[in-house]
Write a protein that binds this DNA or RNA. Sequence first.
DNA 1: TAAGAATAGATTGCACACAATCTTTTTGCT
DNA 2: AGCAAAAAGATTGTGTGCAATCTATTCTTA
Lengths: 141, 141
Amino acid sequence: MNYDKLKLKNQLCFPLYACSKEVVRRYKPFLDELDLTYTQYITMMVMWEQKIITVKELGKFLYLDSGTLTPVLMKLENKGYIERIKNRIDGRVLDLKLTHTGEELMEKAVNIPEQIVKCVPLDEADANKLYEILYHILDSR
Amino acid sequence: MNYDKLKLKNQLCFPLYACSKEVVRRYKPFLDELDLTYTQYITMMVMWEQKIITVKELGKFLYLDSGTLTPVLMKLENKGYIERIKNRIDGRVLDLKLTHTGEELMEKAVNIPEQIVKCVPLDEADANKLYEILYHILDSR
DNA sequence: TAAGAATAGATTGCACACAATCTTTTTGCT
DNA sequence: AGCAAAAAGATTGTGTGCAATCTATTCTTA
């Protein structure tokens, strides 16, 4: 029996998993300046774009469920970046609303993407290819 | 000011992070049959290959530190797949030794890689390219 | 060779992820 | 209208990740 397929070096999932963590680590110094975790940061990215959104919709953007999001959203509310407002039409729904403070935070975050690009060695072709492959996998759910 | 770079769809890190979790999710049904988590699985992959290894060396393979590994290794020891043995020459070092039971587990795991391939839609060229890009980033530490 | 530095792992504390379950509210059906 | 099913979030419990710190041991070097 050949066990080569079980070797770590022959896996595709493993470098994906390791690389994901590695890139998140490289965000940390920049996010520390804003006192945001990575999960809080990507949540704020959606908030900056949507202004108002339900937890459900947010979860679709981030591929996360309420079990993960609820505590994250409570922290962001405590920091004053969002408000959590029960929807009046449908009582099951929680609307998330970007606050003025949350909007201001965007100004401080606006330089992060380009700083990350400097920390991750990828030419544009590879970046595009990577993007394409990753979304191809994600879209196959 | 242009805020496009802060949009989620324009990030490369985010699909990497989401895709990593998605692929790990696709492992779950197969790993559940072996009663292994993904972290325990990749740890066992190293053990199956190395038979004996220190925690330090294992951590280099997996890009994980003792804070993460210690509890994982204790669980694998409880399940009988590895032994944790203090090194006699250097008392600081902990050797991990694959047990017979651990070796047997490999037989049950041997089909997992090919089953995952079926669950992740990637042709060989893209798989190779993805592999190359990911290790390029990982190696830039 | 004795003390300080370095190293290997363990521990602690915090923040996710995610499955499973629970609560509240709304929908759909008859 | 009345009730079962479905939906949206919250809660609970387990298992990572990882920074910071602690302990035990070994190395270094004055």
